[in-house]
Structure formats: C-alpha cells, structure tokens
Nucleic acid binder design. Structure first.
Length: 530
DNA sequence: GTAATGGTTGCTAAC
DNA sequence: GGTTAGCAACCATTA
C-alpha cells in the first residue's frame, strides 16, 4: 500500500506548502497513508549555536504544525537522531510491512542541508523510493536566478532586482491551504511507535527538557511566539495597516521603537517557514493594488525587504565559503584582531557590558527577546567590527546565530558581510556612532535604554548615551555610579574609529595588490557546477 | 581604457 | 528644522 512520507524541515506550515500538498494528493488512492515526519538532527541539537529562545520558538513552531495535523486525525512523527539513520530504519520498517514508499520535501539551499539532502537522494535511490522536492522557501530559486544571469551571482542589489524583474518568470500563486490531511491509521501508529527502540514517544513533540535544554528565568524568555497560526495572524494584522504598508521605508523606521516595533517582525516566521514568502508577497500585492496613495519601491519598501531576503539567499547559494572570510571570493580580507584581549572584548560586547548604553541595551534586548531591529543590528555589528573593536564579523555572526530567533544562515551572513564592509558595502568610512546614532531616535531611544538597562532608569537624559560624562553629583543623585553600577566605556569611540578607518584602508589596498587577475569578461563569478 | 554614477539606513558643522 | 558640504575617497557598474 502506498505511503507518502512528508519530511518537514523548514516550511512548518499547512498554507502554501507544495511538497505537503503533493504528498496529500498522492494519498487519494484507498488504503494509502500520509506520514508527516520531522527529524531532530543532533547536528542542530548538540551544537551550542542555537540559544534558548531559538529552541523555544522552534518547538512552538513544531507544536503548531502537530496541532494542525492532529485536527485532521494525523500526527507528526518527531524522530531524534541522524536523519539518514532514522530514515533508513523508517523505510525498512515500512517496506517490510509491504508498503510502497515515496518521499516529499521542500528543497533547502544552505550548505549543510544540501549535503544532507544529496545523501538522502542516494539513500532513496538505493531503496527504490521516489523522491519529490519543491522550491518554496524563497520566491525565486537561487540556482534559477544565477542561471538566467548567465551563471553569474549578482552581488549588487540593483543588478539582482533587474534579473528577477526582467528575466525571471512571474511569481506563481500560493498553493491552497490544506484544511484537511489524511488521518494516520492506528495500524501505522502502532507500526511506528519507536518508544522501545529509541526510548521516547516519537508521536509527541518534545519539550525543552526532552531535548536536554534548560528553560531560563522568565525575563529571558522571548515574548515572540512561534507557529503558523501566530505568523498568519501577524501578517493579517500588519496588512490591515494599509497606509503603513504602502509608505513603508526601512531606513525611516525607528530601531528603538518597541510596543509596537517599527517593523513587521515577520522574519522569524519566514525563517522557520511558518510563513510562506509567497503568501506574504501576494498579500502585499493586494494591498499595493488597492492603494490610492501609491506605494514605496524596493529597496526600501516592504517588497524590497522580501527581495533582500532573496538577494542574500542567492548570494549565499552562489558564493563559495560564503560564511567565512578565508576562501570567500567576494569577502575583503581584513586582519581582524585575534589577540587574547579580543576574547574579553567580544564577551563584553556579547553580554552588553561595553559601557555604551545604546550598544548594551541592544545586546540585552537580543539576549532577552531574540529579536532586534535591523538598524540596531547595524549599530552593534559596526561597533564589533570596523567601527570600534575590530573583531571579525564571523565571531559576531556566531553570537547572532545563537541569540536571534530569526537567525537565517544566508541573511545573517550577508548582513555581517555588509556591515563589516567585507562585501556588498564598501564605504567603510561611514561609521555608526554609539552615541550620535541613538540621539536621532529620541525619545524612543531614551525609553529603550531605560527599559533594557534598569541601572540607568533614573539617569539624566542629557548623559544617557554617554554616561561617563555625567558629573559625579548627578550620578549619585540618579543612583548609578559609572564604573560601579554601570561600566565605563570600553574604548574611546572617536579616537578608535578613526584608527580603524585607517586600518580598513590599508586592508583594502593590500587586497587590491593581492587579488588575482580578473577573469575574462562574462566569466566572472561563475557558479561551480553541482 | 577612463570617467562618471549610484550605492536601502554616518557624522558634523554650517547655512 | 531641514538641507548641504566636507570628511577623505570605497566598490561595481555603466557610458
């Protein structure tokens, strides 16, 4: 009897999920079964690069999928272990029971996933299992974009925009939402109850404790809730604000705004696939089309934000060693600090102990809530790298990867490359000031710093972003002594940023000398054949 | 080959 | 308060 196995990885949703829809459609024959599977890979579970909030958000997303499946009498099978081993066992069990197995999943372009999925295709081929994959995580398939661009990966946004608007086919309508999926029979449940084999109930979405993760204190648990329901609710709520949607300009939004934030906070849902980028796109188009006041355009518009995601996905796909400096052909080679003190400085930055309230408030919000505004990311990334500490963007990216609930390999890497002036952006002499920048966003930035750094709650506004300049009498009055209740600044920004600009210039000049001769015209940055 | 142009989001002082 | 030049001057693309 036919069994269509749907492998959930991203795309933790029932709306616009082509792979799941096809798997469901394949179950129309009598006695056929849909088996929804998720594999908790030790590559992700055991590594420390996923923080508590990211785990919580993920498990909530998984629970929401299981809840939706359960409403139709189905159930998510959550297997824990190395995917190839698990699927091998699963397939053997099904085949031994006389089933004809087929596998459905959404394609994933990140390096680890590409290797994993290639191995999976081999495994399936060896067992005569038909595999069906679908591109639905992004609006455009990165390899298609590169192909229509003559094998060249666009590394300038405007070039990318030209390619997708002029050379790519129109974005297809979303796949209809699955309101009903085939129920899972008791026989199938009994067959796949691995409790004895693995020591856990695989038909139960695990808790934090189950996967060996501690739940932290209340103040460190993100207020952002995961799941498809929450994603669609947020999308709907945001799209109701038609003026805001049509007038959206990213650089004009306020990084210090909270309750509500000045942007959509849909990124964590897009990352998990709790929200389909295509659904977002079509809902946005509806608002644009109905608008009488016109609407903003990429790169600053809301559509422009969706396209940035596409841009970085494509760059990440087409660039070797994208997440590293060494061996990355588009990355400026910069001798970032690696001395002992840089470890101490990195830690101060990561834990919000720099002595610059704006920087520290951002890093504290990041740790507590798992999300910070894009321009806040700019501020702290510039501070860590070319602005102040001269520490590698790779080390900063790892901290973000752990703490951000929307941590997405392509986007996180791309933005760090940008901010450190290693790729995409090269005006390294434009440095964000840890004091001057937040002043532009008063009074929200004042409230923001007071919220995330309670020690500065009563500190005079005049000195809030540079508290070391505050007269000691006023420090006493505010109940916050700098150097005791809140750290002294870890560096002199004005002096050190000037020195760093000089170092960047040297690194850029040396890069020019060291760079190999340019490839013939039209053959630049060709994509390696798969 | 060279010059001009534009690049989502800097800061400061001067008008 | 809003706009502009200077800062010292980047890159990728296009004319």
């Amino acid at each position: 009897m036919p069994v269509a196995v749907h492998w959930f990885r991203k795309a933790l949703r029932l709306h616009d999920n082509p792979a799941l829809a096809k798997a469901v459609a394949a179950c129309s024959a009598p006695n056929s079964s849909l088996l929804p599977v998720y594999t908790l890979d030790p590559h992700f579970v055991k590594n420390s690069h996923i923080g508590t909030n990211r785990w919580l958000f993920f498990l909530e997303s998984l629970q929401d999928v299981d809840r939706s499946l359960s409403e139709s009498g189905s159930k998510l099978l959550v297997l824990r272990g190395e995917p190839m081993t698990l699927f091998s066992t699963l397939f053997d069990t099904l085949i031994a029971n006389g089933e004809t197995v087929s596998l459905y999943f959404e394609a994933d372009t990140s390096p680890y996933a590409r290797n994993r999925d290639a191995a999976m295709l081999e495994l399936c081929a060896s067992k005569n299992i038909a595999v069906h994959t679908f591109n639905s995580h992004t609006l455009f398939n990165p390899s298609d974009v590169i192909k229509v661009n003559g094998g060249i990966t666009p590394i300038v946004y405007q070039s990318f925009l030209k390619v997708i608007t002029e050379k790519m086919p129109a974005i297809q309508p979303a796949t209809p939402t699955l309101t009903q999926v085939p129920p899972l029979s008791d026989e199938m449940k009994a067959l796949l109850t691995y409790t004895e084999t693995f020591g856990f109930d695989a038909f139960q979405v695990p808790s934090m404790e189950d996967i060996g993760k501690a739940v932290p204190g209340e103040n460190l648990v993100s207020t952002h809730k995961g799941g498809e329901r929450e994603a669609l609710k947020r999308l709907e709520e945001y799209m109701k604000q038609k003026d805001l949607v049509c007038k959206f300009q990213k650089p004009e939004t306020n990084p210090a705004a909270f309750q509500p934030a000045s942007t959509t906070i849909l990124s964590p849902y897009l990352k998990m696939g709790s929200l389909s980028a295509r659904t977002f796109y079509h809902e946005l188009m509806k608002v644009y089309r109905a608008s009488k006041i016109g609407y903003t355009k990429p790169p600053v518009s809301l559509l422009g934000q969706l396209y940035w995601r596409e841009f970085y996905y494509t760059a990440g796909y087409g660039t070797p060693n994208f997440d590293k400096m060494l061996g990355n052909p588009i990355c400026k080679q910069i001798p970032w600090r690696t001395d002992e003190q840089s470890n101490v400085d990195l830690e101060k930055w990561a834990t919000g102990q720099t002595g610059f309230p704006w920087i520290d408030a951002i890093m504290i919000q990041l740790k507590q809530e798992g999300w910070i505004h894009h321009l806040a990311r700019h501020s702290v990334a510039c501070f860590l790298t070319r602005g102040d500490l001269y520490i590698s963007w790779e080390r900063g990216a790892k901290v973000f990867e752990k703490l951000l609930i929307d941590a997405d390999w392509s986007l996180n890497t791309g933005n760090w490359l940008w901010l450190s002036a290693s790729a995409f952006f090269h005006q390294y002499f434009r440095v964000y000031g840890p004091v001057s920048f937040p002043k532009k966003y008063a009074p929200e930035s004042v409230k923001y710093v007071r919220k995330y750094i309670p020690a500065l709650k009563n500190f005079p506004e005049k000195y809030l972003f540079e508290p070391w300049k505050c007269p000691i009498a006023d420090q006493k009055k505010a109940g916050c002594i700098i150097g005791k209740d809140y750290p002294k600044p870890m560096c002199d920004h004005d002096a050190v940023s000037k020195v760093n600009i000089g170092k960047m210039k040297v690194a850029y000049d040396e890069g020019k000398v060291a760079s190999p001769p340019k490839a013939p015209k039209g053959k630049k940055r060709p994509l390696d054949e798969d």
